[in-house]
Amino acid sequence: MQPAPVMPKTWRVDTKPHKFCPGCGHGLILKCLGEAIDDLEIQSRVVYGCDIGCSLLSWDLFNLDTVQAHHGRTTPVMTGIKRARPELICIAYMGDGGGYSIGVQHLVSSAMRNEKITVIVANNTQYAMTGGQMAPTTLPGQKTETSPFGRDPGTTGMPFRGAEMISSIVQEGAYVARGSIANLRQLTGYLKKALKNQIEGKGFSFVEALSSCPTNWRTDAARTWEFIEKDMAGYFKVGEIKIPGRGEVTADA
């Protein structure tokens, strides 16, 4: 008999296995998030919001009250809930398309207003559910369905460093970090700190998680890890960027 897989307490067992592709990073990030929620013992106070794109497949992943909103609009839905019921802990989970493109005005504005919510952006450098188009995070030269000859920064700009942008506009009290599925213990720690920041009412909290999409990257296991740990991490520095009481910190800390 196979041993039962270890799942966070906040995960729904009856909806497993989850619906993500083999090798997808979402399951890992959401496992870290589940563990963070377990450790903080906040399951009965959390409202979880997921976006459109692959993140929507998590609409029944947790034993948490959940709203699956429209593309990029998870941030204002969670903002609306938090403003109406500040005692709830609101988590907006989305991909880099939802966070940095179609919903970027919501992300920027909620960060500037210092909304007491936690936004998590899974960055896999492209739009996965729609079949692998170029995203604001696509690396220079990276081939996608809408940049089939590789992203040309001359005509499409440079990849968007979302966490750094957020850290430059938030006020004291905000927490900003970038983790990676290549270091799950660290990522869980960041998510826990982000949630704690919300619980303590200090300010906006934001975690970007470098994630994988071998399906659209068309990579094998070795190249998938190399892409995350070398290509992506080389451009998107992993580490805490803003910690309340400590101001700006250097990435890679």
Binding site: G80, Q105, S109
Partner: peptide, 19 residues
């Protein structure tokens, strides 16, 4: 809010929160 998209979705959120 920052625009009417946000005003509408935040209203949806407020309603879902039971207000």
């Amino acid at each position: 809010t920052e625009d009417e998209l946000s005003a509408g979705f935040a209203t949806a959120g407020g309603v879902m929160a039971g207000r």
